[in-house]
């Protein structure tokens, strides 16, 4: 029990900024969360919410003259931000791995599948090619690649999208990492293939005890996979809670809007309730709440507080944090009036 409760990854006050010709882009603003071993944390948000950038930053994949990453990221106790790039590189692909949305552009087109995976093993382990190949073959069989011997000699373009994503998953798990970051792993896939891949990820997580950060915009995938959820908007976490609370007792108007925007497969809802307006520009973030310009409930708060003062991400119950000026009673009333979440 103690091992599963152990925090593997701890992110504290993470900021990512990019200097561009148009001004400073604040891609991630003060993001903090903990991830326990073997658990899945989903980061949900729309394009430009900072969900991908934040994860790339903690893997040390945001670099360059124009990027500035600050804050603290502890992976198994080791601070990663500002650490020696070589020590982070040793972790990457070994103890922490990442899979991307588009498996075609994340596999090298000129090298055979087998060779790419063998390389992934040999970079981190001092074993000969024969032994590495045995390990690769076992992993590819585990992720459900048929005719493995033949497939290992093929190039990425010879595989279907679903097969390529299986290869990517195999490659990321080959060194049995403790942390897997999956950035929209099924967005490019058809639903029937998506169902296969999600099932595979769940099985492998159980088998290897991998902790997963799942980045997605699909609330259906979140409901299926996540233990905990962080909702991001305009570079900040606006709500953070266990998965059932996000869906049944959501506390932040943006989360409400997100849930009301999706057409449900299980029932025909006559009219969708979209969030008016567009997501904010990350160059000139509003000084108050980032969601205030699109929020339908800011009048309830009074004194134009939402426009002037950015709310803190504060706990509203034991495990549930929300970044909003609304009071508990106001939230309850709105949820009841608008039939948001599960009604008691």
């Amino acid at each position: 029990m103690s091992e599963t409760d152990e925090v593997l990854l701890s992110v504290r006050n993470l900021y990512v900024e990019f200097a561009t010709d148009d001004g400073l882009v604040s891609a991630v603003n003060d993001l903090s969360y903990d991830l326990k071993r073997g658990k899945t944390l989903a980061i949900v948000g729309e394009s430009g919410s900072g969900k991908s950038v934040s994860s790339m930053a903690l893997m040390g994949l945001v670099a360059g003259m124009n990027a500035k990453v600050s804050g603290e990221v502890y992976f198994d106790g080791q601070q990663l931000i500002g650490a020696d790039p070589e020590s982070v590189r040793k972790l990457r692909g070994d103890r922490m791995a990442m899979i991307f949305q588009d498996p075609l552009s994340s596999l090298h087109p000129f090298f055979r599948i087998g060779d790419q995976l063998v390389e992934a093993v040999q970079v981190h382990h001092d074993i000969d090619k024969k032994q590495a190949q045995v390990r690769v073959k076992a992993m590819l069989e585990r992720v459900g690649i048929p005719d493995v011997d033949q497939r290992m000699n093929e190039y990425p373009h010879q595989l279907s999208g679903g097969m390529r994503q299986r290869v990517m998953i195999g490659m990321s798990l080959i060194n049995n990492p403790e942390l897997l970051i999956a950035d929209e792993p099924t967005t490019a896939l058809d639903v029937t293939v998506q169902a296969q891949i999600l099932e595979l990820l769940k099985d492998l997580q159980k088998e290897f005890g991998t902790a997963i950060i799942l980045i997605t915009h699909d609330l259906g995938v979140v409901a299926d996979m996540a233990d905990e959820v962080v909702v991001m908007y305009g570079g900040s976490a606006v709500e953070h809670a266990p998965v059932r609370e996000i869906f049944y007792e959501p506390a932040m108007p943006y989360t409400w809007g997100l849930i009301a925007s999706i057409p449900q497969i299980s029932a025909k809802n006559a009219h969708l309730d979209p969030i008016p307006g567009n997501p904010p520009s990350l160059i000139n973030l509003p000084s108050g709440c980032v969601f205030a310009p699109r929020c339908a409930f800011k009048q309830l708060v009074g004194d134009d507080l939402c426009e002037h003062e950015r709310p803190q991400l504060s706990l509203i119950s034991l495990e549930h944090a929300s970044r909003c000026h609304l009071t508990e009673n106001q939230r309850t009333d709105i949820r009841r009036a608008r039939l948001i979440g599960r009604q008691k």
Binding site: T192, A223, R244
Partner: peptide, 26 residues
């Protein structure tokens, strides 16, 4: 199979239903 493959944005419903997972590709 297509309908059962779509994840439902409701954790209790999603985790307690039977799902047909098609094998193979198109």
């Amino acid at each position: 199979a297509l309908l059962s493959a779509i994840p439902i944005p409701d954790p209790d419903l999603e985790r307690n239903r039977e799902r047909i997972i098609l094998s193979g590709d198109l």
